[in-house]
Amino acid sequence: MHIPDGFINAGTSAGAAVIAAGGVSVAVKKTSDYMEDKQVPLAGLTAAFVFAVQMLNFPVAAGTSGHLLGGALAAILVGPWAGALCVTVVLIVQAFFADGGITALGLNILDMSFITALGGYALFVGLRRVLPKQRWSIVIASGIAAGVSVVLSSLAFFVQFTVGGNVDLRLGSVLAAMVGVHTLVGVGEGVITAATVGLVLGVRPDLVYGARDLATRLELKPQVRTAGGLS
C-alpha cells in the first residue's frame, strides 16, 4: 500500500526523497553498464510487467487478498539494480495517478523499490550460498527472499513512521500490526514469486538474472542424419 501525502512529516519525506534520488541515479548507472542501449526498452517493458503483475490478486486468508509487490521478483529476474529501477518507475507513474502522494514518493521508493529489490536480492544471494547449486534451490531462495522482502519493506515503513510519523501512536502496536499483516502478505508473495521464477527457469532459464551461474554454454553438436530422411 502506498504512503499518501501528509502521512509522514515534511522533513522526513524530503530526506527520503534525497536518498531515493541518489539511489535512483546509482541504479541508472549500474543498469546502463550491462544493458547498454537495450536499457530503455527492456526496463520499460519490465516496468510495464511489474505494473501489470501488481494487479494480480491472490487469496491470503479467510476471504482477504493481497497483491504482489514484485520488487524481489523483478530483482531476481532482471537483476537487483534494474529491478529497483523498474519498480521505481512504476511508483513514479502511480504517483501521477494519485496512488501514493507526490511528496511521499521518496518514502515509497525507499520502502517498496530499494528495500524489496536490493534487500530481497541480497537475501537471495545469501541463501544461494548455503543451498546446493541446483535449480530447485533457486526457486526456494527466491520464495524466501521475496517473502522476507515484504516484511523488510514494512519494517522500513515502521522506521520512517518512528522518525517522522504525524500521529503519536503506540509504536509497539504499529510494529505488531505492520509486521503481522505483512508476514501474511509475504507468504503469498513468496509462494507466487517462487512458482513464477520456477516457470521462467523452466522455459527461458537464460532470462533469470539470479541463475546466470547455472547457465550452460551452448555447444555445437555433430549433425545427426535421420535414417530415412526427406526425399
Binding site: 519490465t46 510487467f49 501489470a52 503483475v53 494480480l56 504482489l68 521478483l73 529476474l77 509462494v191 507466487i192 514469486t193 517462487a194 512458482a195 513464477t196 521464477v197 520456477g198 516457470l199 521462467v200 522455459v203 532470462l207
Partner: peptide
Amino acid sequence: ASSAGTLF
C-alpha cells in the same frame, strides 16, 4: 504464478 511467469 504460471501466468505471471509467462507474462514476464
